[in-house]
Design a protein around this nucleic acid. Structure first.
Lengths: 263, 263
DNA sequence: TTGCTCCTCACGTCACGTGAGGTGGC
DNA sequence: TTGCTCCTCACGTCACGTGAGGTGGC
């Protein structure tokens, strides 16, 4: 004879609102043990309190409801813990991103803007190992990290050293629609003869180049300075932008420009 | 002769999506300096880039758009900085809350549940200084802190010491609808004769009492244990719950029960 | 002429919250 | 009989994203 609780009582015990509980019922996350067929009144068992407490904690940590469902449905403790650890890791990443963004806001307010100079350059056609995928704006950094690892593993397998810094190509849609096909690449040494499916050729490109130094959260200021420079001189093209990741702190941004450009 | 940029170019310079830019135009946050009357094409000035960069940073930090608008419209730097500092402070509070919640999740998963015992007690009618307001669930902790400060200031002004721990009364709706009229109170000494508008009488109350020790993020587990205890014995009433804040770590939760209850 | 960017609705997303309008149990 | 809790739609919120369907400039 289990103790049954009305939805209002269950709400008070679990600190979940009645509206939230009905929503979780609709989604099948916490289904009342009994529903009166004529009135529709929900009755919860006291044994359902721990489930509700878990959901509340996961939601407090902003886990999406479909992932909450996966956690609840996880057959064994190991599968459940994997999902939980993955979420906690994402939260930590977001936390670190927030700190960088606070720094970036401070930098902007204090007028610490990039003062690097613009240089015109012809990037020669280059053989590369390349990985491409349609990626959402917010997933780009994560994807890029993975692509880098994968490409460096390819280099190792092929037994060649890289012929230059890791980089990526971003098409216009990536900036306008915050989603587009990014290509990540590692240059091969000149005259390298490896041939795998990952091998590709980057075409020659005339570019206005600016080196961004500092946090990636500030990268837009370099885009602003470089893009404004190019727009004022009316030499910009609509083509893809190339970035070269020189080291932890410096990114070379290469903005496509017309042939006519001179320094 | 300022440089004009199409919405696509402006998007690439600022790292804001075209859809977001149109949204900000609709809200009047970044209005293009020129809109073609026949085609509706938007043209942005290079001078609008810094505004866009500020918005991007504020949005990255999850500032709501109406507050962003207030920041942009702030007449002087002092007003702008007040709004920014207020937001950064809220972010820090949320960050601290997240850490507490991670701890709370760990505690639940590791089975570190409250094992305090339930005690039946008659809380006598009490004279108090009282502050009440309709408060949303998420604002409750902040409101309670303010109320406490204000009530303690009242005590000082009246020249009396408190007659017991600070506390609050929560009506059923507060738990079921996550919004309701909370009353915060400080007890007055017995036979105190101060009379101000803030003075009120808390009625006598029969209660099942459990002391919660630990983080407030875990308070629901005590509610679960206490509420289950009361429900199993069918002695619970639908009245308001009273909490007494004994010290930084301990809260006394008083659940209303029927007269018939005995231990 | 063909793409391409750009335009404006209208609707979708996510996790509920907010009423409207109505019914059963004490 | 009167409140009270509970019920089910239907729509609102927030900051955009996702198409649909269409037009101007090179």
């Amino acid at each position: 004879m289990a103790t049954l609780l009305s939805i209002g009582e269950f709400a008070r015990l679990t600190h979940l609102s009645v509206k939230a509980l009905r929503h979780y019922d609709d989604l099948g996350l916490v289904v009342p043990t009994h529903v009166d067929p004529t009135t529709g009144y929900r009755s919860y068992a006291a044994a359902q309190v721990p489930t509700a407490q878990l959901i509340r904690r996961l939601r407090d940590l902003e886990m999406p409801l479909d992932e909450v469902g996966a956690v609840l449905a996880a057959g064994d403790v190991a599968a459940r813990d994997r999902a939980l650890v993955a979420h906690l890791q994402r939260m930590e990443e977001r936390l670190a991103a927030t700190e960088r963004r606070v720094g970036s806001l401070r930098a902007l307010l204090e007028g610490r803007l990039p003062d690097a100079s613009v240089e015109y350059r012809v990037l020669p056609a280059t053989s590369v190992f390349c990985a491409a995928a349609v990626v959402d704006w917010d997933d780009a950094e994560r994807w890029l990290d993975e692509a880098r690892e994968s490409l460096e593993a390819d280099l190792l397998r092929a037994g060649v050293a890289s012929g230059g810094p890791f980089g990526a190509v971003y098409p216009p849609e990536f900036f306008t629609a915050h989603r587009g096909e990014i290509s990540a690449f590692v240059p091969l040494p000149r005259n390298s003869s490896v041939s795998t499916t990952a091998r590709a050729e980057l075409p020659e490109m005339r570019a206005a180049v600016m080196v961004h130094a500092g946090s990636f959260a500030d990268l837009d200021t370099t885009y602003g300075a470089l893009g404004t420079h190019v727009a004022e001189r009316m030499i910009g093209l609509d083509g893809p932008v190339r970035e070269h990741y020189l080291d932890e702190l410096r990114v070379e941004v290469c903005w496509p420009i017309a042939d006519v450009a001179v320094s």
